[in-house]
C-alpha cells in the first residue's frame, strides 16, 4: 500500500522559492486505480516523480509497504523502481536503440523477473505481435504508449504510475489504452496512480483525487 503523508516540495525560481506541494496526503491500496487531476502547474507530475523516487521531497514521507521511499539512498530508490514499479510517461520514453521486443522485456530482465508466458500474454493483449522487430520511432503514438505500458507491466509491478499516458493520443486510442491498463492492473492486483487532465478518463478509474494549490482535495 502506498501512503503519502504531509509531502512538501518547492523549487527555486531565480531568487525565490516556489512551493509546489504544500503537505500532500494520499493513499493507494493494492488493486486500486486512482486518478490524480489538477490544473497545469498544480504539482501532479512532481508528486508522481517523488512517489517514483525520481526526486526527493523537502518534507513529509512516502512509504510503500514497510519501506520509506522518501528517505532511501539513490541506489535503493533505483532498485525500488527497477523491481517494484511500473512507470509510464506522456512522452513514452522508450529506449530508442532497442526494438519493441527488447524494450518490452528490458526492465523485467533487468529486475530478474522475466516471465516468458506473461510476456507472450502481454504481447497478445497489447496487440504488439507485428511490431516486435520495429524501433520506437517507427511506431505511432498509440503503439508507443502500448509498448510503454507493456514494459511497465512486464515486471508485474506492485505499483503502476502513469503521467498523462494518454495525453498524446486521440480519444478512441486513449480509451483503448486505458481500458487495457486498468484490466491488466486488476489482473495483477497492483496499485495504479494516473495523472490526467481528462475528467472523462478520471471517471473510468476507481477513485479520483484533485490537486490544487499544492494540496489534495
Amino acid at each position: 500500500m502506498l501512503i503519502v503523508s504531509n509531502l512538501t516540495k518547492s523549487y527555486s525560481s531565480g531568487q525565490d522559492r516556489v512551493a509546489v506541494l504544500r503537505g500532500v496526503d494520499l493513499a493507494v491500496q493494492p488493486g486500486e486505480s486512482v486518478a490524480l487531476t489538477g490544473e497545469s502547474g498544480s504539482g501532479k507530475s512532481t508528486l508522481l516523480h517523488l512517489i517514483a523516487g525520481l526526486d526527493q521531497p523537502d518534507g513529509g514521507a512516502i512509504t510503500f509497504g514497510e519501506e520509506t521511499i522518501s528517505t532511501m539512498p539513490d541506489a535503493e530508490r533505483a532498485a525500488f523502481r527497477r523491481e517494484r514499479l511500473g512507470l509510464v510517461f506522456q512522452q513514452f520514453n522508450l529506449i530508442p536503440s532497442l526494438t519493441v521486443a527488447d524494450n518490452l522485456v528490458f526492465q523485467a530482465r533487468l529486475a530478474g523477473r522475466h516471465d516468458a508466458a506473461w510476456r507472450t500474454e502481454l504481447i497478445e493483449r497489447l496487440g504488439l505481435g507485428a511490431l516486435l522487430k520495429r524501433y520506437p520511432e517507427q511506431l505511432s503514438g498509440g503503439q508507443q504508449q502500448r509498448v510503454a505500458i507493456g514494459r511497465a507491466l512486464a515486471i508485474k509491478p506492485l505499483l503502476l504510475l502513469a503521467d498523462e499516458p494518454t495525453g498524446n493520443l486521440d480519444e478512441a486510442t486513449a480509451d483503448d489504452v486505458l481500458a487495457l491498463a486498468t484490466d491488466l492492473v486488476r489482473r495483477t492486483g497492483c496499485g495504479f496512480l494516473m495523472v490526467t487532465h481528462s475528467e472523462r478518463l478520471a471517471g473510468m478509474l476507481d477513485r479520483r483525487v484533485h490537486l490544487h494549490a499544492g494540496l489534495i482535495h
Binding site: 525520481l54 533505483a78 525500488f80 523502481r81 527497477r82 523491481e83 512507470l87 533487468l110 529486475a111
Partner: peptide
C-alpha cells in the same frame, strides 16, 4: 540525455 534518462527512471543508478 533523452536516451539515458529512461534507463535511470527504470532503475539503473546514475553511477552505473
Amino acid at each position: 540525455l533523452p536516451q539515458v534518462a529512461p534507463l535511470w527512471a527504470i532503475g539503473i543508478t546514475r553511477r552505473r
